[in-house]
Design a protein around this nucleic acid. Structure first.
Lengths: 136, 136
DNA sequence: CTTGACCTTGCCATGATGGCAAGCTTTAGC
DNA sequence: GCTAAAGCTTGCCATCATGGCAAGGTCAAG
């Protein structure tokens, strides 16, 4: 093992794309560990670096820290059933869909109101009219 | 003015659909005010109640507290140009669209991975494989 | 007058993220 | 070898919208 290069948190951050701040945060949450120098500096080996990269990609897909933790456990378990991974993904997909639906509903309503607002110098505005309506 | 009924925060909450907790929060942010009894209890008149209802509807459309504050100012300004209201709405619509796009991007990628995951007893999983990939 | 419902403020928590500050360590330059 | 800069440590604060809890004051009904 000649290339057993250990990285400081700044280097690990640069290589993984996870900010040093968030690396420390993930450590608190139990998603990553690190060795420490005598002075207390964190040191990351290639396995931990790979783990940070994993976290970043999962985060880019919108997974919460909690689900990422579960994904990491499955990843590190050679006996995992892929069913469990897929289930986590499907739960996340359901949440994404729900959020999209909610946003599209807002978008639809608000766009209708904006379309009905003249957007000129006059004070009358369909948007404000709708917001002050007694009936929702 | 025989019906000058003043409501306590609990009653105002029930009628406006805004939790008492959030009413106090909006007060801190300067979105609503209230009178106080000698004992310090908040009291809301019908104008303030209407304002709370306005806030709730704006919130339901996803407006941030900050933008709601701006909407309230315009609402209360008889000389407002509807252009400014529409501009706020359009800014919010742009943010909604951006969020939807981001979520749809996640949805697309993750759905592809989930589709490629067998979801059985075997450990191999396309999702985990993608997350550990060196290349993003 | 007692009890229960309601009110007050203030603090803590979520979730992901950033900023700042005080202080220690390491490295690079001279 | 010393100094300065860069990098690390921890800890606290802030965002945004929202809820919970606790300690304590108030009011209405019996």
């Amino acid at each position: 093992m000649s290339t057993s290069s250990l990285l400081t948190i700044g280097q690990a951050s640069a290589q993984s794309g996870v900010s040093a701040k968030m690396i420390r945060h993930y450590e608190e949450l139990g998603l990553v560990t690190s060795a420490r120098t005598a002075a207390g500096y964190r040191l990351y080996n290639s396995q931990q670096l790979q783990q940070l990269a994993f976290i970043r990609k999962a985060r880019d897909l919108g997974f919460s820290s909690h689900r990422i933790k579960e994904l990491l456990l499955l990843w590190q378990n050679p006996a995992r059933p892929s069913r469990e991974v897929k289930q986590l993904a499907n739960q996340h997909l359901a949440e994404i869909s729900a959020k999209i639906d909610q946003l599209q509903q807002m978008q639809l309503l608000l766009q209708q109101l904006a379309d009905a607002c003249d957007g000129n110098d006059a004070p009358h505005c369909a948007i404000l009219a709708a917001l002050q309506q007694d009936k929702q």
